[in-house]
Amino acid sequence: MAAYQDTFTSIPLSELATLAQSKKDEGARFINIHAATVADGFVLTYTFTSNETVTDNCQVHVTADDVVPAISPLFLAAFVFENEVHDLFGINIEGIAVDFKGDFYQISIETPMAVPTKPEHATAVNTKYGATVPVKQRKGEEQ
């Protein structure tokens, strides 16, 4: 199989805005933003490709209190992922181009991906016609 080439580099949060600008200036294509929960916060991965051959993954370590600058003013397609990361992980991203302000996915559980175990519904969901979803206590630590 022809070898697939990808790179992983770590950068500090302070360099994220300059990285996005340099990618825009060199004409790189934006691919993806996603987050993963780690022991002391989150790791955001920004993926670009400069020459359509090598996939460059740039990883930024953030905590729940950090304010992350949005790259969607430069790459409009990123607004989907920035809203998603904000809603599902609770990461604070400032300046999203099309900001749904927490309402992108209307789910009743706060930041479900940031909780280590499966979070149960915090409040009973009202359904007519007899079936109700029972309220269960959260297992493990609070978020």
């Binding site: 691919i31 409009l76 397609a77 607004f79 989907v80 992922f81 099309v98």
Partner: peptide, 8 residues
């Protein structure tokens, strides 16, 4: 998800 911006 990438093409949603293009749709808008």
């Amino acid at each position: 998800s990438q093409n949603l911006g293009g749709l808008v």
